[in-house]
């Protein structure tokens, strides 16, 4: 059985199936985080004046800034790993993908440090509505990071065998995984100011 347009683009839409599929998935992700951002706004409006800002002072801005930079870097290396494949440089692909994975591990480690220091200070999701939405949003974002790491890890390890047999299909897969990874980065770009800075 052959499904058409897995590798070649359909002429009238100019797309391969997986490209359309991932964008639809990302659209649904926009709505998922949209629901949570909407909850953030609703809770912020319902809280006493300035309370959200005050509760937010507990968060560690320097660590989060570092995390933002790490995640942006990982996004660049992700797109570079795709570009390397486009230039037929499999070794560079492995290198960039490796850096991407390292960055994601770094991100999670810093997140872990942040979480545990909050718990040590007796701050939990149940402390107030700001902390509740903070832990929910960053936690869900963290799950997305882990999901992306699994995919990227697979594509770097066992999945990369495909490069030898179907290079174009494999490059497409990297592009699709990249789209997801950039989206996770994009969500963080909004989470960071909304949670840490406002």
């Amino acid at each position: 059985m052959e499904i058409p347009y897995t590798v070649e683009e359909r002429p009238d839409t100019g797309l391969i199936n997986s490209k359309l599929g991932i964008w639809l998935f990302l659209a649904s992700e926009v709505m998922l985080f949209g629901g949570l951002f909407s909850a953030y706004v609703f809770l912020r409006l319902g809280a006493p004046d300035g309370a959200f800002h005050e509760w937010g002072q507990e968060l560690n801005v320097p660590l989060a800034t570092l995390n933002t930079l790490i995640l942006i870097s990982s996004s660049v290396t992700m797109v570079m790993s795709w570009a390397s494949l486009k230039m037929n440089d499999f070794k560079k692909f492995k290198m960039y993908m490796g850096i991407t994975l390292l960055c994601s591990v770094g991100f999670l480690v810093i997140k872990y440090i942040e979480y545990t220091s909050k718990f040590h200070h007796g701050i939990f999701p149940s402390t107030n509505t700001f902390m509740a939405i903070y832990f929910t949003l960053t936690g869900l974002h963290g799950l997305h990071i882990i999901g992306g790491m699994i995919v990227n890890g697979f594509l770097m390890g066992p999945g990369s065998k495909m490069w030898k047999t179907e290079p174009e299909h494999f490059t497409n897969r990297i592009e699709i995984a990249g789209l997801y990874w950039h989206f996770v980065d994009l969500v963080w770009i909004f989470l960071f100011p909304v949670l840490y800075l406002l």
Binding site: A27, S28, E29, V30, M31, L32, F33, G34, G35, L36, S38, A39
Partner: peptide, 8 residues
């Protein structure tokens, strides 16, 4: 479009 907000 509509299911993800319920998931949230």
């Amino acid at each position: 479009m509509a299911f993800p907000p319920l998931e949230a």
